[in-house]
Amino acid sequence: MIDVSNTSFNPSNFILVGIPGLEASHIWISIPLCLFYLIAVLGNCAILLIIKTEPSLHTPMYYFLSMLAVNDVGMSLTTLPTMLSVFWFNSTILDFDACLTQMFFLHSFSFMESSILFAMAFDRFIAICNPLRYATILTNPVIAKIGVAIVIKGISVVIPVVFLLKRLPFCKTNLLSHSFCFHPDMLKLVCADTKINNIYGLFVVVATAGVDSVCIALSYVRILMTVLRIASWEGRLKAFNTCVSHICAVLIFYIPMIGLSVVHRFGRNAPPALYTLMGNVYLLITPVLNPIIYSVKTKQIQRAVLRILCARRRQTSPRQAL
Results as ranks from 00 to 15, higher is better:
295 S>C: 04
134 Y>F: 10
262 V>S: 13
169 P>D: 07
264 H>E: 14
137 I>W: 00
10 N>Y: 12
22 L>C: 04
198 N>A: 06
80 L>P: 01
72 D>A: 15
63 Y>M: 13
266 F>A: 11
276 T>D: 06
319 R>V: 11
281 V>D: 00
62 Y>F: 15
135 A>C: 11
298 T>H: 02
163 F>I: 03
156 S>W: 10
96 F>W: 06
148 V>Y: 10
94 L>N: 02
8 S>F: 03
160 P>S: 07
120 M>W: 01
188 K>H: 13
309 L>H: 11
154 G>K: 10
152 I>W: 09
304 A>K: 00
307 R>T: 10
231 A>G: 07
301 I>C: 00
291 P>H: 04
248 C>A: 14
51 I>K: 01
5 S>N: 14
78 T>I: 07
114 S>I: 00
187 L>Q: 08
7 T>N: 09
319 R>S: 10
23 E>K: 00
280 N>D: 11
300 Q>T: 05
238 K>H: 11
191 C>F: 06
32 P>E: 05
118 F>P: 00
237 L>G: 03
86 V>K: 03
71 N>Q: 13
14 F>E: 01
39 I>K: 04
81 P>N: 06
50 I>M: 10
73 V>D: 09
318 P>W: 10
271 P>K: 08
72 D>T: 13
227 V>W: 04
265 R>G: 05
105 F>I: 12
168 L>Y: 02
41 V>M: 05
94 L>F: 05
132 L>W: 06
249 A>S: 15
168 L>H: 09
292 I>C: 04
